[in-house]
Measured scan of single mutants.
Amino acid sequence: GFTKEQQRLGIPKDPRQWTETHVRDWVMWAVNEFSLKGVDFQKFCMNGAALCALGKDCFLELAPDFVGDILWEHLEILQKE
């Protein structure tokens, strides 16, 4: 899971503390893990605080249908851990 990747890359547990690099690493991991298609990494050029502050509607505009939902749900789980 993502926990191993977080440990390997030194990504903080709390997504709100992520840098732009951490956000990119997470999106890249999720794309590979969940076989997601059509993700534009440029749209995720922000730090974790900005990403978490978007709200669901704005977040879902960053990625194609269903893909955004998967990313959003995973981000929500990470914020609760």
Rank of each mutant, 00 (worst) to 15 (best):
residue 22 H to P: 01
residue 61 E to L: 06
residue 25 D to K: 14
residue 22 H to T: 04
residue 59 F to V: 04
residue 53 A to K: 13
residue 54 L to A: 05
residue 33 E to H: 13
residue 50 A to P: 02
residue 33 E to V: 07
residue 66 F to S: 15
residue 43 K to Q: 10
residue 24 R to P: 00
residue 41 F to M: 15
residue 45 C to K: 11
residue 59 F to C: 03
residue 14 D to A: 04
residue 68 G to P: 02
residue 1 G to D: 15
residue 4 K to E: 14
residue 18 W to C: 02
residue 2 F to T: 07
residue 59 F to G: 00
residue 51 L to A: 01
residue 70 I to M: 09
residue 52 C to T: 12
residue 49 A to N: 08
residue 55 G to I: 02
residue 1 G to P: 06
residue 52 C to I: 12
residue 44 F to S: 02
residue 22 H to A: 05
residue 64 P to E: 07
residue 12 P to D: 05
residue 48 G to R: 01
residue 49 A to C: 05
residue 2 F to M: 07
residue 17 Q to P: 00
residue 39 V to L: 08
residue 46 M to D: 02
residue 51 L to H: 02
residue 45 C to W: 12
residue 36 L to C: 05
residue 13 K to H: 12
residue 37 K to P: 12
residue 60 L to W: 04
residue 18 W to T: 00
residue 28 M to L: 13
residue 12 P to V: 02
residue 9 L to T: 10
residue 62 L to Q: 06
residue 33 E to Q: 10
residue 11 I to D: 03
residue 19 T to A: 07
residue 21 T to M: 11
residue 8 R to Y: 07
residue 16 R to E: 13
residue 77 I to L: 15
residue 16 R to C: 12
residue 51 L to F: 01
residue 14 D to N: 09
residue 47 N to C: 07
residue 62 L to S: 05
residue 65 D to M: 13
residue 24 R to C: 09
residue 44 F to H: 01
residue 25 D to T: 12
residue 15 P to S: 00
residue 44 F to T: 02
residue 34 F to N: 06
residue 58 C to M: 13
residue 11 I to S: 05
residue 39 V to R: 02
residue 7 Q to T: 11
residue 39 V to F: 07
residue 69 D to Q: 12
residue 80 K to N: 15
residue 57 D to A: 11
residue 56 K to C: 01
residue 27 V to E: 00
residue 10 G to V: 07
residue 29 W to Q: 03
residue 20 E to D: 09
residue 23 V to T: 09
residue 62 L to V: 05
residue 15 P to D: 00
residue 28 M to S: 14
residue 68 G to D: 02
residue 62 L to A: 04
residue 35 S to R: 12
residue 37 K to L: 08
residue 51 L to D: 00
residue 8 R to F: 10
residue 11 I to R: 09
residue 65 D to L: 10
residue 39 V to P: 03
residue 19 T to Q: 07
residue 33 E to G: 04
residue 9 L to G: 07
residue 16 R to H: 15
residue 46 M to V: 07
residue 44 F to D: 02
residue 44 F to E: 02
residue 13 K to T: 11
residue 48 G to V: 02
residue 71 L to Y: 00
residue 73 E to I: 03
residue 59 F to I: 04
residue 38 G to M: 06
residue 66 F to R: 15
residue 57 D to M: 08
residue 78 L to F: 05
residue 36 L to E: 00
residue 8 R to C: 08
residue 5 E to P: 03
residue 63 A to Y: 06
residue 52 C to V: 11
residue 38 G to T: 07
residue 38 G to Q: 07
residue 49 A to V: 08
residue 66 F to I: 14
residue 37 K to W: 07
residue 22 H to E: 11
residue 74 H to Y: 04
